[in-house]
Design a protein around this nucleic acid. Sequence first.
DNA 1: ATATAACGTGTATTTTTTACACTAAGTAAT
DNA 2: ATTACTTAGTGTAAAAAATACACGTTATAT
Lengths: 241, 241
Amino acid sequence: MFQITNSLTIKVLKEVTPGFDFAVSIDCVLFGFDGSELKILLIERNEEPFKDWWALPGNLVNEDESVDQSAQRILKELTGLGDIYMEQYYAFGDVNRHPQGRVISVAYYAMLRLGGDKPLKPLSNYAKKAQWVNVASLPKLGFDHQHILNKGLEKIKRRIKHLPLAFELLPEKFTLTQVQSVYELILGKKLDKRNFRKKILSFKVLKELEEKQRGVSFRAATLYKFDKRKYNKLFGKEISF
Amino acid sequence: MFQITNSLTIKVLKEVTPGFDFAVSIDCVLFGFDGSELKILLIERNEEPFKDWWALPGNLVNEDESVDQSAQRILKELTGLGDIYMEQYYAFGDVNRHPQGRVISVAYYAMLRLGGDKPLKPLSNYAKKAQWVNVASLPKLGFDHQHILNKGLEKIKRRIKHLPLAFELLPEKFTLTQVQSVYELILGKKLDKRNFRKKILSFKVLKELEEKQRGVSFRAATLYKFDKRKYNKLFGKEISF
DNA sequence: ATATAACGTGTATTTTTTACACTAAGTAAT
DNA sequence: ATTACTTAGTGTAAAAAATACACGTTATAT
C-alpha cells in the first residue's frame, strides 16, 4: 500500500488525523500499611525510558480500553495485583513530562492491606520487580512520579478526614491503636487517644470482637473489624479528625 | 519522501510510535450566577461532530501546550473569556466517548461573576456563539457533556462546603441574601437565614459597606464585599453548611 | 514477685450547630 | 397620608460535637 522511499527508521506508518498524536498513560499510587509504616508500591523498571529506575506502576493506555479498565490491567501486569478499586484523582499534562513524546498521565490511588496473601509478581517484563517502599525513605523516582505521588498524598490526607479510608489499609482484624496509627501517619500529627476512640467508635462502623491480639509482648489489645454494611449507610456524612 | 500508491483519503501521513494515536481535549464547566439563577456557559458548535449542537466549551490540546495552558487558550477561543482560574477536576476516558477517534477529555471548572463587563465573543469559528444557560433548563448536549457537567456539579457541591467559592459567582458588592441564594442553589436545599448569616459572618471574610442596594422594590439590603486578604489567612480551615 | 509497656476508660469545658418568629424599613398603591 | 406589601435584619436557648486532660488495668518478661 505504501512505498517508503527513504531510509529513516520508521516504527509505524499510518493515517493520522492532526491532534491524534498523544499517548495517555496511567500511574497508580498504592498506599499500604504494615502495622507501623506507611508504604507505597513501586516497580523497578525494565524498559526505557528510566530503565532500572524506581517508578510508580504505570504504562500506556490501549486504544480499546477505557482509562479505568486500563488502570486495572496495568496494575495487574506490573505488580500482579488484581481486583483493587482505585480512584482517579488527577491528570498530569505538562509538555515535557515524558522524554519520548507527548504523554498525558491519569493518576489513580488506592489503599491496600499488606500481607503475605498478596504476592507481588510482575506479569509483564516492563517491570523487573514490584516492592512496597516506606514513604518516609523513597528512592529517586523516574518521570514526574515524585510529584504525582505528592499530589496523591495530599489527596488522601483530605479524603481520610471525611471517609474511613483507613480501614482499607488495615488487616481484617485490627486494634484501635492501629487505626489511630494510620490516621496519625497520613495526617502527619499525633491525635489524642481517648478522643480518637470516642470519635471513631461514634460512627458505629466497627464491630468489637471477642478476640484479642496474639503473640505480642505486653498487654494484648481487643480486635475489631470493619462493618462495611453499616459504612454504606453512613455515606455522605461528614467526618473530621 | 513518501510515495502514496493507493487512492484513500489520507489526512496526514507521519511517523508514529504505537500508542501515540490518542487525542486529548479540554472541556470547561463555567458556573455563573445572575442574581437568581445558576447558569452554565455553553457554546453552539460550528464544527463536526455535533455541529449545531450545544456543548461545553472544549477542544483538542495542542502538542506544544500543557493541559492547563490549553484550558486557558480553548476557553478564550470559544468564548472570548480570558484570565479565569479554572481547576481541573476529572479526566473522562471511555472508549467511545468521541465519535471521531480516541479522545480523552480533561475537565475543568470555574465560578464566574456574570455581567455586561464580560462579553461573550467566540474568537475562532469552532463556536457560532457562547451563551449562559440556566442549569435548571439545559438543552441536550453533544458528546458526554451532560455527564461531565453532572460530575462538575457534584464537585462544586462538595467544594463549596469547605471553601467560600460562592463569592466568585457574585458581583463585587452583594447582599447576604444573594450569598445565601448561591449556596441554596448549589446545595439544592433551603438554609436558615439567621444561622446562615451567623456562619458566613463568623469567617470574617466579608466587609460590611456603608452602602445599600439601589433601584430595588421594597427595602434595600446592606451591601458587603469579599475580603480576599482575610480569606487567604483562613486557608485550610473547614467550613460546612 | 516485680518491672514494664501498652491498653482502656470518664468528665468537665468550650465550641459549634440547630431550631425557631417577630419587628423594622422601604416601596407601591390608593 | 394611610395602608398594604415585601424583604431585611435580628437573638436565644437547647443540643451536639470537639477538646483538654491522667490514671488504674492487664498481659508479658525477667
